[in-house]
Nucleic acid binder design. Structure first.
Lengths: 362, 362
DNA sequence: TTGTAAGCGTTATCAA
DNA sequence: TTGATAACGCTTACAA
């Protein structure tokens, strides 16, 4: 490996000169500059970022904790975040938490060891992970993405509004009996979407006579199995207001699984039963019937998250003497309640083939 | 940040003792060990991996270059690789190449700067990237995944066989006129699948009278647009052997887009036209009609790739004095042609609803 | 405009 | 069984 020393020797200058040519932090005479540049080029020199990080106390890297990359929603998000980070000169260390708090803790510790400058965190589980809170306490800037965690900065969409728009649409179509297939019970996204749904149904003029709730994982298999379980329980055999005429899935993957199961039950969507998703991933436009869903501006969410994180990193908001700073602010009587920024982005209802008025009652 | 020095001071020992307690590289008396451990615990000490990397000359990290994380095929692969790497103590730096050789070069240079121990590389473009070859020449171990590149170690599936199985199936069903919607022209996966298809068709008893070829990106939009373009060109209006009765898409995403377009053209799959994909991602089982496809053992591919890479890394196969070693081997008369390992994994044909015999000729 | 040298947090070599 | 101390490759005072 060729080091800065080799370059210095080859160019007949000192290492600090080489360093300064590279960083531009002090003026260098043109001839020297050229000689150094030539040597760098000739030797194929590349600064060692471990060494740079050691002295600068910044690795210029971010930890990305994501629950499930096989879900294209997370895939697109991860992609957009990595690109945004790269544009700003940061690298991304990928961590697949798989909804497992132990794995999360493990990753967090590794990321701190690696001196990441910040954390992009997709919570998969309900409670903010203990290890995450420790990391925050240790002064590592964190931005929570997708879910809302009250005491941490975050970027997410207006899930309530998305639910509400779905609710209004379904109510206006005349649906009074619904099955809501949620993600993990208690997750803010799930709760907000559900509460929005309720509000929207009311606004749309129909207090639902029947709103069945199921919770589980944010996965196709959960949608699929829930429908079959419900069918076994006779939910779809009921008559009148008991029988759900619309299935509201808490995300697109669940909807995809539900769609399959409904079809296996010979229930045609939307003729016999309407179906909606949430997220607006690409395949929703492609499948048959195309899926009515709530579109998230994923790229904007992703870039906003990276922006927010870098802003916090570069403002030194993070610094280990943060506690000290806060103390000082206190002494100055200048203490303000620390503002926890929550960036909430708007969603768009996308009405497609999968919804229709309920079938005439039997 | 608490450093090894702080721990040493707190425990009343030298830094080298602390280091050795942690590494276990030399015997430590039980009392000292406990005192050190206690200090570590109490101070919340975490070794700085940048510093460790600087001296050990290994960052224990891998670069992962992937073209398109929004494609769940790559998402699952990335996930499985990251998990395998993590299990072995390596971190993964995520790089989204987006099929752009410039981006690739950029990432490669960054990864070398970061002293990654190896590279997991999904080629998106035809020619092995110049920058990649330079990295290889610089002595960084690389494993190419998914595509086959002759002079580089790789892990991929038997694409020819997958194509062949599809060909046999379609031939046996009686299809003689096909439309093949490929990925990028010239990519090994595309070529191999196509050649396999041809072989399979022949074996299945029908030399195709008509095999239309289209190439483009490995994306849903490409499948979608190709079908519409073909329709505008009258391809589906032709009669007799001219009209394709089956569409073979080079991957599942293309098939998904094609399915949508066929439906918009009022061509029902499989009644009017059969359709097949490749990869076997999750959604292929869920959509309507469910997609006949070739299933890749993605997790196995991913873990095999990581295994192979780590094996090469840890065998020192990579070492910068590789050239020197090779020279030495030469002197010893022991030179063997360097074996470039290619791990080829089997695929499975999954026959689902999207294929049927061709419609009776009009 | 340039060079010298201290120091970043580790590991590893040598002594004791 | 332990401790000094010299690297590792870089940045950055401080000097010249």
């Amino acid at each position: 490996m060729t080091t800065i020393k080799d370059v210095a020797r080859a160019a007949g200058v000192s290492v600090s000169t080489v360093s300064h040519v590279l960083s531009g932090r002090r003026p260098i005479s043109e001839p020297t500059r050229l000689r150094v540049l030539e040597a760098i080029e000739r030797l194929g020199y590349r600064p060692n970022r471990l060494a740079q990080g050691l002295v600068s106390k910044s690795s210029r890297s971010l930890g990305l904790l994501v629950p499930d990359l096989a879900n294209p929603f997370f895939g697109s998000m991860a992609e957009a975040m990595e690109i945004a980070a790269h544009d700003r000169g940061y690298s991304v260390i990928l961590c697949n938490t798989n909804l497992d708090p132990k794995r999360e803790a493990d990753y967090l510790s590794m990321l701190l060891s690696r001196q990441v400058d910040g954390l992009l965190y997709f919570p998969g589980t309900r409670v903010p992970n203990r290890a995450l809170l420790e990391a925050v306490a240790a002064g590592v800037p964190v931005v929570v993405v997708d879910e809302r965690i009250d005491n941490l900065p975050g970027v997410f969409v207006d899930n309530f509004d998305g639910g509400r728009q779905l609710g209004r649409l379904l109510a206006q179509l005349g649906h009074r009996s619904l099955l809501f297939i949620g993600g993990p019970e208690g997750l803010p996204t799930v709760t907000d979407r559900l509460n929005g749904l309720r509000a929207g149904l009311a606004e749309g003029g129909s207090a639902p006579t029947n709103l069945l709730l199921r919770f589980g994982e944010y996965r196709a298999s959960h949608g699929y199995e829930t429908i079959h379980v419900c069918a076994r329980e006779g939910v779809f055999a009921a008559v009148g207001d008991e029988r759900p005429t619309a299935v509201v899935a808490a995300n697109d993957m669940i909807a995809l699984g539900a769609l399959r199961a409904l079809r296996e039950l010979q229930l045609q969507v939307p003729r016999d039963c309407s179906l909606t998703g949430f997220d607006g991933v690409e395949f929703t436009a492609m499948i048959t019937p195309s899926l009515t869903t709530v579109q998230q501006p994923s790229t904007r969410v992703a870039t906003a998250a990276v922006e927010l994180l870098l802003q916090r990193i570069e403002s030194g908001e993070n610094h280990r003497d943060r506690a000290a700073q806060r103390q000082q602010a206190h002494d100055d009587q200048a203490e303000v309640a620390p503002v926890i920024p929550h960036v909430v982005l708007p969603v768009t209802l996308v009405v497609r083939e999968s919804v229709a008025p309920p079938p005439p009652q039997r």
